[in-house]
Simulated scan of single mutants.
Amino acid sequence: MKSPGSTSRNIKCLIVFSLCLGLVFLSGFFHMKNKNNVISESHEELLPCRAKTNVMFLKTHKTASSTILNIMFRFAERYNLTVALPANELLHLGYPETFQAQFVEEFQTIGQNYNIMCNHLRFNPSEVQKVMAANTFYFSILRNPILLLESSYVYYKDDVPAFKFSKDVNEYLASPTKYYHPANYKQNIYARNIMWFDFGYDNNAEDNKKYIQTVLKEIEQNFHLILIADYFDESMILLKHTLCWDLDDVIYFKLNSRSQDTVQTLTPESKERVKAWCSLDWELYLHFNQSFWRRIEETIGLKELENEVNHLRRRQKELMEICLLNQEAVGKDHINNKALLPYQSGAANILGYNLKQDLDNRTLRTCQKMVMPELQYMSHLYAVQHPHKKRKQLGLPLA
């Protein structure tokens, strides 16, 4: 028989053991709870971000922006979004006048309920904000001013007074003030600092360091992202990531490009003269080219960027094999379907595409939208969104 003291000791041990077991259980409970919280937090981090559907793209001139406009229009159709289209007979949103909300079709009725804005306009933030929602994502694209000026010269040769009377782009750049008169700035906007003008600023302003820094800061405040046309595929990957879009949302066929035989070769002297003549655009480009690559390094990384660019190009090649008869763009005289003929301007031969003939209806619609030129696509969307309005008269030259 056990003594009373032994029984008491056993009871105490049992109590201590129970307490320890309880502490172990509680410790495990809290550990599991914390572990579950970590899993939950980690799971939340892995959740896909939500695609942005309120987007404003400032369509700058001669910067591959027509290709981006096509991307925006296709995205709008895919998700049944409302596009801020030019009112009445307008083909652009009032350009080159500074943008006003009244330039948008049915603004008085629709108000601040547009999802997409991407037609040409001269940026005016206060008026754009009347049309677009408060959570709108703003982005634009820039191009090396040296390449841009040569492209502008050829494309607008017949329309811009500063270009008309010079033999070629090198002659123009040798003494631009001989041909360019600031008093005719609305007619000559394509001949100097056109990107600066598109962002809403004076393209004839003095090259003043303080002024330039003020403008660059304003642009950074107004726009969430600035892409670079010289790195277009890389730009599309960055855009995809930033907007949380799918790869097919940014797949493209290059639009509004011209034949190589219309490209004029700039002399080394002319290239340097562009930097001085278009110094505002040059500073704009240098600044945002740096921020573009910094953004990529901070968000995607160069190795992953390379992988995704290769994926984009493979998908693009796949779609070209499905859609295109020639597997490439062709000159204006070789476009079979004149409804798909791009607008022709100046001395440029704007290329277009021929589609395969044996496509099923669904594939045909997809392919048609990928190659549809800017004015035709805008007219199509206008008819869909405003069926009771008169169709846009595009006045496309058929030559």
Rank of each mutant, 00 (worst) to 15 (best):
Y114R: 04
Y155T: 09
N115H: 15
F123A: 02
F139S: 08
S140F: 10
K178W: 09
V128M: 04
K167G: 01
S151C: 08
S151L: 07
L147Q: 14
Y155S: 02
R143I: 13
T177G: 05
N144L: 05
A162I: 13
F137T: 14
Y114V: 02
M132G: 05
L173T: 12
Y114D: 01
Q112Y: 01
N115C: 07
Y179D: 06
P176C: 12
S126L: 10
I116S: 05
K167W: 07
M132R: 06
M132K: 06
I141S: 06
T136I: 06
G111F: 03
I116A: 07
N113W: 04
Y155M: 08
L148R: 15
I141M: 11
Q108C: 00
N115W: 10
Y179V: 06
Q129T: 05
P125C: 04
F137A: 10
P125S: 07
S151Y: 10
Q129A: 11
F165L: 11
S166D: 03
V131D: 00
K157G: 01
S140V: 10
F165H: 14
S152Y: 09
D159P: 00
Q108G: 04
M132C: 03
K178Y: 13
C118D: 08
Q112M: 01
S152P: 01
P176V: 14
C118L: 06
Q112K: 13
M117I: 02
S151F: 09
F137K: 09
V128E: 02
A162E: 15
T136A: 11
S126N: 11
S140Q: 08
V154T: 15
Y153N: 07
M132E: 02
Y155A: 05
Y155G: 02
T136H: 03
S175C: 13
Y138G: 03
F139V: 05
A134N: 12
L149V: 12
N119R: 09
F137Y: 15
P125L: 09
E150I: 11
L121Q: 09
N144I: 08
S166W: 07
F163N: 07
